[in-house]
């Protein structure tokens, strides 16, 4: 930890802004009322929530994943790249990757994650349906997270400096509260609602087929 390093200080401030922003947005979500549901459930909500996070997320269980295998794969790679960057960012706060034994092992995930991000940007521009859906935030968020993956990739391969990586991370963190990136937190709420809705009704997990 080097408090004399300006990029380190910027990163710390950005972390406070980014994580604080997520917390505020989650708190706002929790501020909405959630009436109790007294209808007798067919399947226990616990069982269906577990299903929603596990088997229910498998690609063959979702028509969208079955129809768009490449998009699904691209999404998985992009998110793996992002999570790898986060792990690396955390480690980099304490020890420089250059001295971190094996940090180069992150490079395949980061490289593929970057390519997935780049492809996602191109598809967002090229696909007419996505053009109809796009908000400016979709591009800003996507480009920023793709850049953080790229800078992490350069960092572990010692092509770029730790400061560049921190700079990219700071940009993402500072923009985060106003972006769609908090979907990483909302995801859990949405999955819970999804699991409870279809689980209570006995739709998911599906009952044993009678025919």
């Amino acid at each position: 930890m080097d408090f004399t390093n300006p990029s380190y200080l910027v990163l710390i401030v950005s972390l406070v802004v980014g994580l604080g922003g997520i917390l505020v947005r989650v708190a706002m979500l929790l501020g909405h009322s959630a009436p109790k549901d007294p209808s007798p459930p067919r399947v226990s909500p616990f069982k269906s929530i577990v299903y929603a996070y596990t088997i229910g997320m498998l690609p063959w269980k979702k028509e969208s994943a079955r129809l768009h295998k490449l998009v699904y794969l691209r999404g998985v790679l992009l998110h793996l790249g992002v999570f790898t960057s986060i792990v690396l960012l955390w480690l980099s706060l304490f020890v420089d990757a250059k001295s971190l034994y094996g940090s180069v092992a992150f490079s395949p995930l980061l490289g593929l994650g970057f390519l997935a991000g780049l492809a996602a940007v191109i598809v967002r521009i090229a696909d007419k349906n996505l053009r109809a859906l796009n908000r400016p935030d979709d591009f800003i968020s996507l480009i920023l997270v793709t850049l953080i993956i790229l800078s992490a990739f350069g960092y572990v391969l010692s092509i770029t400096s730790r400061e560049v990586f921190w700079g990219a991370a700071s940009a993402v963190l500072l923009y985060l509260p106003w972006s769609k990136i908090p979907h990483v937190a909302y995801f859990f709420f949405a999955k819970n609602v999804f699991g409870i809705y279809f689980g209570r009704r006995g739709v998911m997990p599906a009952p044993k087929k009678s025919i």
């Binding site: 979500l29 959630a34 796009n134 769609k180 979907h183």
Partner: peptide, 13 residues
């Protein structure tokens, strides 16, 4: 209600 707020916020298009 919260379930509506969640659906409003979560979509990534």
């Amino acid at each position: 209600p919260r379930d509506v707020a969640i659906a409003l916020e979560t979509c990534v298009r």
